[in-house]
């Protein structure tokens, strides 16, 4: 079966939360995957341990962009503790497809950004 399910293509072509947030209020981070040339910039606004806003921009393959998009939707309104509890399997689970080890890196790029933001 193709991993290019409609849902993934939809998130790739119309990523959710694909915006920058108000500077000054938000924290931001840049991550990249030099192997593919994927780049992601992510910003969050966190208040009282809860994710208020999240936005990202970047370029990458369908899997990395769709994954960041789905993760951003999932993260909004969740508590910091809940989000830090996510593991790689949960993140891939959001995509709803099976991935080869090679594509794992793509799928987890958004998560890497999120973890960095939550931890700093």
């Amino acid at each position: 079966m193709s991993i290019y399910a409609d849902l993934i293509l939809d998130h790739y072509q119309h990523p959710r939360n694909n915006t920058l947030l108000t500077p000054g209020v938000s924290k931001s981070v840049d991550v990249n995957n030099p192997l593919c040339g994927d780049k992601l910039h992510m910003e969050i606004i966190e208040k009282d341990g809860v994710m208020q806003e999240i936005g990202f921009t970047g370029e990458g393959c369908a899997i990395s962009i769709a994954s960041a998009s789905m993760l951003s939707e999932y993260a909004k309104g969740k508590s910091k503790a809940e989000l830090l509890d996510l593991n790689a399997q949960d993140v891939v689970g959001l995509l709803g497809i099976d991935l080869t080890p090679n594509r794992m890196k793509c799928a987890l790029l958004g998560w890497e950004a999120l973890i960095k933001l939550l931890n700093n």
């Binding site: 193709s2 991993i3 290019y4 192997l35 593919c36 040339g37 994927d38 990458g60 393959c61 369908a62 899997i63 594509r103 793509c106």
Partner: peptide, 22 residues
């Protein structure tokens, strides 16, 4: 508008092996 990895992956679904990357 299509990342080389996605091209390679869809080709692989048709048993075509190409390289994508730098």
């Amino acid at each position: 508008g299509i990342h080389p990895h996605d091209i390679a992956q869809i080709l692989d679904e048709q048993h075509i092996a190409v390289r994508a990357g730098h």
